[in-house]
Write a protein that binds this DNA or RNA. Structure first.
Length: 264
DNA sequence: ATGGTCGACAATCGA
């Protein structure tokens, strides 16, 4: 089973890239973030073109939005929280029937948090911290099993998840308050599946800013996109693919697709 | 210390 996550930064603008991605990597399930499309305008016809006929989506005008395309039928989990009471379309939870049994899949788009790492002067940063705290409480109250959590979590927790630990300690995405909260969230019952394949001392990035024209040369990346699995699925992990080639496609997203393969 | 580039949508806002 191949599960892919990608911050596509506008689903409608990058439908052709999505088709190319699915053709190249043959995922069974694709989780997207920043679809930026209201549900009424969701390009449902893409599902057939991708041969991923089962969809779940939760979008809004201009901002945020998540969607899942799947080869297998999806059942949307009822009663999930409206995170921070904002109705801002940052999460989908579904269940699919893997050969070994049902698996729960979470697709998250965590707030980016703005520029200033001070919750007292930057409401976006306060929102980001509150969002992660609320997610942590949710999984403490609802301990996960046979679960996979993917998405753009907008936090690079480890020293080698950023190009310069020292230079980014004060930059939103790598500040200690964010990292501490993310670790608490992870430890509600998940394992970092990407670091299962890549040791902590190796650099690992999934995002390169649009503001660096020649992203290869500077290589100032960050690991903002994540795949977590519950311990019961760790023995089933088989492979990790960071599809960096997509960062050089025409009109690329600033995030690259991340795919995990499991024997489930 | 600063500005650098995108996407959505129609002047900025968010990333």
């Amino acid at each position: 089973m191949r599960i892919l996550t990608w911050n596509i930064n506008s689903l409608r603008l990058r439908l052709a890239s999505l088709e190319r991605l699915v053709a190249e990597l043959a995922p069974d399930i694709v989780c997207l973030q920043e679809t930026k499309v209201p549900d009424a305008l969701f390009p449902a016809q893409a599902a057939a073109a991708l041969s991923l006929p089962h969809v779940a989506y939760c979008g809004m005008k201009s901002y945020n939005g998540v969607a899942i395309f799947s080869r297998l039928p999806l059942r949307t989990c009822p009663g999930m929280p409206d995170w921070c009471g904002r109705d801002d379309r940052r999460h989908l939870a579904v269940v699919f029937a893997a050969p070994s049994g049902p698996v729960t899949l979470h697709d998250f788009y965590v707030p980016a948090g703005g520029d200033i790492p001070d919750p007292d002067v930057n409401a976006k940063y306060a929102h980001k911290l509150a969002f992660v705290e609320e997610a942590t409480r949710h999984f403490v109250d609802n301990p996960p099993s046979r679960s996979i959590l993917v998405g753009d979590l907008n936090i690079a927790p480890l020293e080698h998840d950023v190009w310069s630990h020292k230079q980014l300690l004060g930059v939103v995405s790598h500040t200690p308050p964010e990292v501490e909260r993310m670790q608490a969230w992870l430890h509600t019952g998940f394992t970092d599946a990407m670091r299962h394949f890549v040791p902590d001392h190796e650099k690992l990035y999934t995002w390169w800013s649009y503001r660096n024209r020649d992203w290869h040369v500077a290589n100032r990346g960050r690991r903002l996109d994540h795949v977590w699995v519950t311990p019961d699925l760790v023995p089933r992990l088989r492979r990790l693919t960071i599809h960096k080639a997509a960062r050089d496609w025409p009109a690329p997203s600033d995030h690259v697709p991340v795919m995990i393969e499991l024997d489930i």
